[in-house]
Amino acid sequence: MSIDTIQVRVTAIAEVAPAIREFTLAPVGGELLPFSPGSHVVVEMPAEPRPHRNAYSLLSDPRESGSYRIAVRRQETSRGGSIYMHESVAVGDELSITPPANLFSPAWSARKHLLVAGGVGITPFMSYLPELERRGANFELHYLYRSSSTGAYREQLEQTLGERCFLYDSEAGNRCELGTLLADQPRGTHVYICGPETLIAGVHEVAQSLGWPESHIHYEAFAAPQPGNPFEVELARSGVTLNVDADSSLLEVLEGAQVQVPNLCRGGVCGQCQTRVLSGDVEHRDEFLSAAEREQGESIMPCVSRAAGKRLVIDL
């Protein structure tokens, strides 16, 4: 990892929705760093053959720095990080985490904050809400979930937020009319979306078609690296060639070979791991590079992106 990790102990595990578990993490000696609303940490899980490293939003009140809380949704089809958290982590276990980083901070100049959460995407907003309340900000939470698997914290949210909380259980047939919701907002509203990519894309598209300014649309999606075709990568500086198998990300393979690459989000958004490509075509899967940069093909975000062909030469 590019940053010194922090050792934490799991002090509590709670089922907050049928498919979501909440983990309370306390420091092993020392104190935890304070964080700002919207921050996340990367949790390192000591799995075999390679560790899982997943980013999770901190969902506690930023003023409570005695412990951190994260919530993990079990993803049956993913590469196993969430299943590891659900099945292999017990109270008393120790884990390594990175210090908090924030790529999804509220825009405090907003005249109104419209929070749109889908499923486990409620987590970053759990740290927004206490701070929004303290500042007396104008906000609404619109929370879309499926009660048989997600919908964590909804009773508590409904109770504390009252009429500023809007719940949509798709299994009860409650749909959120995005067109109406986004058309009805006053000037100076910022919208924040966290949830599945389809929700982010949907809100984004509707907001754009309604003339929302791009800089007032904020979203966070930690795309876990998706599997792809295996390929070979040559490190130009050392001359070493590594094989990236179908299930590993390029970043993971580099880390496995003790090649240090700075990184923060491991999900294609923060830009820290940007690496120069010397030859080979890239299948870009990140949210960081601009269309023009993709076109140029001189950079890759190794946390999520892969070679489009069989071989890639990078400047490491």
Partner: peptide, 8 residues
């Protein structure tokens, strides 16, 4: 100040 974004 009235809430418009700079791109507007």
């Amino acid at each position: 100040k009235a809430g418009l974004a700079s791109e507007q």
